[in-house]
Amino acid sequence: MVNPTAPRLGVVVPSGNAAVEPEISALLSGHVHVHATRFPLFTEFEQRERIARYNEALAPAIASFGRLGARAVVAECSGSHYLQGPAREQEFCDDLSARFGVEVTTVTRTVLAALASIDATEVTLVSPYAQWLTDLSQGYWEAAGIKVRDIVKVRSSKGFSPYDVSTDELVEQVRAADRPKDEVLLMTGTGMFTLAALEELKAGVERTIITSNLATAWWSLSRLAPDAVVNWRLAP
């Protein structure tokens, strides 16, 4: 059954990202409905310039929700906000929230909120990114006060590409890294499918693994449906 009165979450997603809607919807279990719009393609630009332009395109994307009645909107491209840095990102979200009269945040800010909720100040990054983007990611988290203890690089059969990492590839490479179970693993990238891997790695049961989509789901429930009961948790 679908609850037509459940609060509505808007997400703004890169065009090729197939993971955000199904993963967040699965985690929200119908307590919050997910409604998506997409950033422009910007195919004429290389990746760094393209993700920078997503920040300029976010306001029109939010406007495209029109009369949907979203209670909150999350921008779902981590790299765009690595480029901004946490201080500028805060101002950016505040400005958009005031402009549209709805809380606007970013996936990276939902990750920071999730980490704060479990008192985590150190992480080991699990990164499917190319080196330049991994470096930007590390710089962002450290600027936000999160110590990066180490980095586990995850490579798909097609190279460093979040969209192409399979569950088997992700699980195998995380297990091969043999990180201590008391570490917090932070899996970066909204476009990497992670839910099946979290189950195999006993996330929330034997160890703490935070992913971009898990953080957005947790943040959405905390804001929009705080009394909802779900069958997962951030930490054991």
Rank of each mutant, 00 (worst) to 15 (best):
L68H: 04
L68F: 00
L68K: 07
G69V: 01
G69L: 01
A70M: 06
R71N: 01
R71L: 02
A72E: 11
A75P: 12
A75F: 01
E76R: 09
E76V: 04
E76A: 15
C77H: 13
C77A: 14
C77D: 12
S78I: 00
S78W: 02
G79E: 12
S80V: 03
H81Q: 13
Y82M: 08
L83C: 10
L83K: 11
Q84V: 00
Q84H: 10
G85F: 09
G85R: 08
P86Y: 00
A87Y: 00
A87R: 06
R88D: 09
R88W: 00
R88C: 01
R88G: 06
E89M: 06
E89A: 11
Q90C: 10
Q90Y: 12
Q90K: 15
E91L: 10
E91D: 14
E91H: 15
F92R: 14
C93Q: 13
C93A: 15
C93T: 12
D95C: 05
S97P: 04
S97H: 12
A98C: 05
A98V: 03
A98M: 10
R99K: 15
F100M: 06
F100P: 06
G101P: 05
G101L: 07
G101T: 05
V102W: 01
E103W: 00
V104R: 04
V104I: 10
V104W: 00
T105S: 14
T106W: 03
T108Q: 14
R109F: 14
T110F: 10
T110W: 07
T110C: 11
L112S: 06
L112C: 05
L112M: 08
A113P: 05
A114W: 03
A114T: 12
A114I: 02
A114Y: 05
L115P: 09
A116R: 15
A116F: 04
A116G: 13
S117V: 01
S117K: 09
S117T: 06
I118A: 07
I118P: 11
I118V: 14
D119R: 14
A120E: 10
A120Q: 04
A120K: 00
T121P: 04
T121H: 11
T121D: 13
T121G: 11
E122A: 13
V123H: 06
V123P: 07
T124N: 07
T124M: 09
L125K: 09
L125N: 09
V126C: 14
V126I: 15
S127A: 12
S127K: 12
P128W: 01
P128E: 09
P128S: 12
Y129M: 08
Y129D: 09
A130Q: 15
Q131W: 03
L133C: 03
T134I: 02
D135G: 03
D135V: 03
L136V: 00
S137T: 03
Q138G: 04
Q138V: 02
Q138S: 10
Q138H: 03
G139W: 07
G139N: 12
G139C: 06
Y140G: 04
Y140P: 05
Y140E: 06
W141H: 05
E142H: 08
A143P: 00
A143Y: 01
A144M: 04
A144E: 09
A144N: 10
A144P: 08
G145L: 05
I146T: 04
K147S: 14
R149L: 15
R149I: 09
D150A: 13
I151K: 05
I151T: 14
I151S: 02
I151N: 02
I151G: 02
